[in-house]
Amino acid sequence: MPLLDGTERLGVLRISAPPGDGRAQEDMRHLASMAALLLASKRQQSDSYARMVRTRPMNVAAEMQWNLLPAPISPTTRW
Rank of each mutant, 00 (worst) to 15 (best):
residue 21 D to N: 09
residue 7 T to D: 08
residue 50 A to P: 01
residue 75 P to M: 01
residue 64 M to L: 12
residue 41 S to W: 14
residue 40 A to C: 05
residue 39 L to P: 02
residue 41 S to K: 12
residue 41 S to F: 09
residue 64 M to N: 03
residue 54 R to M: 00
residue 42 K to Y: 05
residue 45 Q to D: 12
residue 77 T to M: 11
residue 6 G to D: 06
residue 7 T to G: 14
residue 76 T to Y: 14
residue 19 P to A: 15
residue 51 R to P: 01
residue 4 L to R: 13
residue 3 L to M: 09
residue 11 G to Y: 02
residue 11 G to S: 06
residue 5 D to S: 07
residue 64 M to P: 01
residue 54 R to S: 02
residue 44 Q to G: 11
residue 30 H to F: 03
residue 74 S to W: 14
residue 63 E to P: 01
residue 79 W to Y: 05
residue 18 P to H: 06
residue 56 R to C: 00
residue 51 R to T: 03
residue 16 S to Q: 04
residue 20 G to S: 09
residue 13 L to H: 14
residue 38 L to Q: 04
residue 3 L to E: 10
residue 51 R to L: 15
residue 51 R to S: 06
residue 10 L to H: 01
residue 49 Y to W: 14
residue 21 D to Q: 04
residue 18 P to L: 10
residue 79 W to F: 12
residue 52 M to H: 08
residue 68 L to G: 04
residue 54 R to F: 00
residue 63 E to L: 11
residue 65 Q to P: 01
residue 7 T to C: 08
residue 3 L to T: 12
residue 78 R to W: 10
residue 43 R to E: 06
residue 73 I to C: 09
residue 77 T to L: 15
residue 56 R to Y: 00
residue 71 A to G: 04
residue 54 R to W: 00
residue 58 M to W: 04
residue 74 S to N: 13
residue 73 I to H: 08
residue 6 G to M: 10
residue 79 W to D: 05
residue 70 P to V: 03
residue 8 E to A: 03
residue 62 A to T: 14
residue 60 V to R: 10
residue 52 M to Y: 10
residue 66 W to V: 00
residue 8 E to M: 02
residue 32 A to Y: 02
residue 7 T to W: 07
residue 56 R to L: 00
residue 40 A to Y: 05
residue 50 A to Q: 13
residue 69 L to E: 12
residue 73 I to F: 10
residue 1 M to H: 09
residue 45 Q to K: 08
residue 9 R to D: 01
residue 43 R to T: 07
residue 18 P to I: 11
residue 44 Q to A: 15
residue 9 R to S: 05
residue 9 R to A: 10
residue 23 R to K: 08
residue 26 E to T: 06
residue 22 G to P: 05
residue 44 Q to F: 13
residue 43 R to C: 03
residue 35 A to F: 10
residue 47 D to E: 10
residue 7 T to R: 10
residue 42 K to G: 15
residue 70 P to E: 08
residue 52 M to N: 09
residue 16 S to T: 12
residue 5 D to G: 09
residue 70 P to T: 07
residue 68 L to W: 00
residue 39 L to E: 12
residue 35 A to G: 02
residue 69 L to K: 04
residue 70 P to L: 03
residue 42 K to N: 12
residue 77 T to S: 06
residue 11 G to H: 09
residue 13 L to S: 14
residue 57 P to G: 11
residue 59 N to Y: 00
residue 61 A to H: 06
residue 21 D to R: 08
residue 19 P to L: 09
residue 13 L to F: 11
residue 53 V to L: 05
residue 79 W to A: 08
residue 41 S to E: 14
residue 61 A to R: 15
residue 50 A to V: 10
residue 60 V to G: 01
residue 42 K to P: 00
residue 18 P to K: 09
residue 4 L to N: 11
residue 47 D to F: 05
residue 34 M to Q: 11
residue 61 A to Q: 11
residue 73 I to T: 13
residue 11 G to Q: 07
residue 21 D to L: 10
residue 8 E to D: 04
residue 23 R to W: 05
residue 15 I to Y: 01
residue 69 L to F: 02
residue 64 M to Q: 10
residue 48 S to K: 07
residue 47 D to M: 09
residue 77 T to D: 07
residue 18 P to D: 10
residue 59 N to I: 04
residue 52 M to K: 06
